[in-house]
Amino acid sequence: MNSLFTPLSWDDTGYILTGIWNTITISVVAIVVGTLLGMVIGFARAESNRAVNVLFGGVLDVLRSVPLIIQLVLFSTFVGAIGYPLDPFVAGSIVLSLYTMAFMSEVFRGGFESVSQSMQTAARSLGMTYWQTIYHIRFPIGLRAVLPSWLGVALSVIKDSALVSVIGYMELLRTSEQLIGRTQQPLTILIGVGIFYFIISYPLSHYGRSLERKMAI
């Protein structure tokens, strides 16, 4: 009689690749959407008065301080309860993107605020309009300054995307959990998954450090 468990085999490759693909997809979605929204909000916060900032800041603080796993469960339960259950990918993308946005907005705000008023006045004194100054001076200087911290947030989002498994999204961690259940080879599988995250993260963080060195000059 065959065992209840079947060992890991090459037939599982497709399944694992799906997990990898899904991890990459949701990470890319969250990083792209989170970056774009974060840039807009970061700019708005750098530009606007106290009242707007307190309002914005409160919401962003909540997004940043409530653990992602709780946000995921609460959000997907909530949309289910009001009768609009969402596909785990969609629900996960929304929550992870907003979570990313909350961190990115602080990163970008810092970058835009790092461009001195005097630098902007100098640009205006050349006849440049407000928006020309934003586009040619403030954005490029600010964005360069935040590249290393942007990369840091992006990396942590890739890792945090594993949490989307709790609402049933078949990303890498969840596929591997299921494989573990079937094969009872947790060590092999988890080491494999760990290596995957490392392979993705290490070159990026290495690149980030070298950028940082280059720009420190």
Binding site: S118, M119, A122, S125, L126
Partner: peptide, 19 residues
């Protein structure tokens, strides 16, 4: 903006665009 084209200004801070 148009007026400022006629008025060059230089400040105590150098304000070179670093990028």
């Amino acid at each position: 903006d148009k007026l400022r084209q006629k008025l060059g200004m230089v400040f105590q801070q150098f304000n070179a665009f670093p990028h």
